[in-house]
Each structure stands twice: as C-alpha cells, then as structure tokens.
C-alpha cells in the first residue's frame, strides 16, 4: 500500500511538473536583443565591427603593396 501511494505521489508530481514546464514554454519566448534592434543601437555595433574590419583589411592591403614593391626591387 505504501509503495502504491509513493508511486501515486511521484506520478502526480511529475504530471504537475510537466504542466508547469509546458506553461512556462508557452508563456515566454526565448529572450533576444529586441530592444537593441528597435532603438537602432545594433547599427552602432555593426559600424564598430565594420570599422575594425576595414582597418584590418587596409593593413593587409598595405603589407601586400609593400611586398609588391620589395619584389620588384629584387628582380
């Protein structure tokens, strides 16, 4: 009898947990940076990252040009 009650309690608890979990799933969406998108601050991030990228690319181009010059001197 005791075993039966134990099982019953476990079953009820798991059902309860399941329902709670399902409710939680439907209520809140995964949190995203929607505020950043709506007030346009995301463009600041994009601008900063693009500037860094352009800086790095310009650096690589400069090294490329210098190497070309050196190669011409050697030949």
């Amino acid at each position: 009898m005791k075993k039966f009650i134990n099982r019953w309690v476990v079953l009820m608890m798991s059902l309860f947990a399941f329902v709670l979990n399902a409710a939680a799933q439907t209520n809140d969406q995964p949190e995203m940076a929607d505020a950043m998108r709506s007030n346009g601050k995301i463009y600041v991030v994009v601008a900063v990252c693009l500037l860094i990228l352009f800086g790095l690319i310009a650096y690589v181009i400069r090294i490329d040009r210098k190497l070309s010059k050196l190669e011409q001197q050697k030949d």
């Binding site: 995964p30 995203m32 995301i42 994009v46 693009l50 990228l53």
Partner: peptide, 29 residues
C-alpha cells in the same frame, strides 16, 4: 578574389548582425 573576400566579410558582419535568426533558448542572440 581579394575584393571578393572584402565584400563577403562586409556582408558577413552586416548581415550577421542585422538579419533575422531563429529564436532559441539558451543560445539567444
């Protein structure tokens, strides 16, 4: 192809931050 690299990387950063992504738990943004 160096120009292609620059164009693709600009697209990666601009599109990567601005375009839609699926909403997932834990991963989020």
């Amino acid at each position: 192809w160096k120009i292609a690299a620059v164009v693709l990387l600009v697209y990666t950063i601009a599109g990567g931050f601005l375009m839609n992504v699926p909403r997932r738990f834990i991963l989020n943004e």
